[in-house]
Design a binder for these strands. Structure first.
Lengths: 200, 200
DNA sequence: ATTTAGTACGAACGGTCGTGCTATTTTGCA
DNA sequence: TGCAAAATAGCACGACCGTTCGTACTAAAT
């Protein structure tokens, strides 16, 4: 099964391209050249461009899980875990070794009017992520780390806003202040929900 | 000068395409077909694809100015004008007659790793917009509508986050709750800066 | 030892892309 | 009304797109 090696190489290379230039930049020709394969040789591994894109999304999930979710889950439930999760989330793609930005965020803006299987998958990932965030906020509320009347959905929504602002500040403006600004916004959001400032 | 008419028609059609599918979707062939021109006939108006893209960005600015900035400026200085500006900003593209999302927001995510004149222009627009927002926040502070120690840059940064979250909620998830969530976040942000709740 | 499956290649397909060059039509003015 | 100029069409180009095909070579299964 030498294919596994090759496939992995292709997907790793493709993930970098996806991260830097979005889905549109992942063409079979360029990917073949970058990996030293022929177009048809590479194509045989996926049998369609759509399948390649889905494979790349899957790999993105695995990467994010390893780099964000798993380490965050090692923290105690409630606010500490939420803080860890969000802290690992913001800017995770560079720490995961990607030379560009978050593939899912980019895909969301790229596909907002392009129906299809890939868009559907991205929507799924986004929803799963929101659910994960929601669960942590919920737990923080239940444990009394946040006000009982906190609107968890609103908190998740605003966290996404901070993430997107961080993403675009970092990747488009290339302003490293993004981290500080995001941290400030995060602390303000959680304090508004009654978090003890000492735990932020 | 029949050209003016035709050019206007092309740009209007192109703006819809740009709004719905991003810069990548604006191809000379498709645009020619949509306007009933020949590829070369349309091409003659702009002499390069880059020039066409820049022309579309210019038109976006004119549209945003008419639909967002001008009406907002008719409000009294300080917090009222800031509130009007932000209110007109969120979701402005649909109210301006575009069938898709904000062209600038989409371009920012599309071009984050693609250097060139177009990217530079988008960066300029983004910066000008932040300056405009900043000026309004600044004025609200000077007029005592917001706390004197308010960090105007931070406010602008978070406003952008709310805008992006609103944009993606509306256009990708197609969730009309976006308006309510954005309003909630906006009110919270301004209250944190000492705005009188009666004026929100 | 022979068949089978996996892996990769080169060539070619119909399309679309942006961009030139040269006609032809249409327009606005003397 | 005639004519120069402006506006548009027609056609061709090279490049790249995703995809298919036929064909090797290799490793595993029979």
């Amino acid at each position: 099964m030498k294919a596994e090696t090759t496939r992995t190489r292709v997907i790793e290379e493709g993930l970098q391209t996806l991260s830097q230039g979005g889905l549109a930049a992942v063409t079979i020709g360029r990917l073949a050249e970058a990996t030293g394969l022929s177009k048809s040789g590479l194509f045989a591994h996926f049998r369609s461009r759509e399948a390649l894109e889905l494979a790349l999304l899957d790999e993105t999930v695995r990467l994010a899980w390893r780099n964000v979710v798993e380490p965050a889950m090692r923290n105690p439930e409630g606010l500490p875990r939420l803080m860890a999760l969000v802290g690992l989330w913001f800017g995770w793609s560079s720490r995961a070794g990607l030379r560009g930005g978050c593939p899912v965020a980019a895909a969301m803006f790229e596909l907002d009017d392009t129906p299809g299987v890939v868009r559907d998958r991205v929507a799924e990932l986004d929803e799963e992520w929101r659910r994960l965030l929601h669960a942590q906020v919920r737990q923080a509320i239940d444990l009394g780390h946040l006000h009982a009347d906190t609107d968890a959905d609103q908190v998740v929504w605003e966290l996404r806003g901070i993430y997107l602002a961080h993403h675009s500040t970092m990747r488009f403006q290339r302003d490293p202040d993004a981290d500080r600004r995001a941290q400030t916004a995060l602390v303000a959001l959680l304090q508004r929900c009654g978090a003890d400032p000492a735990n932020l």
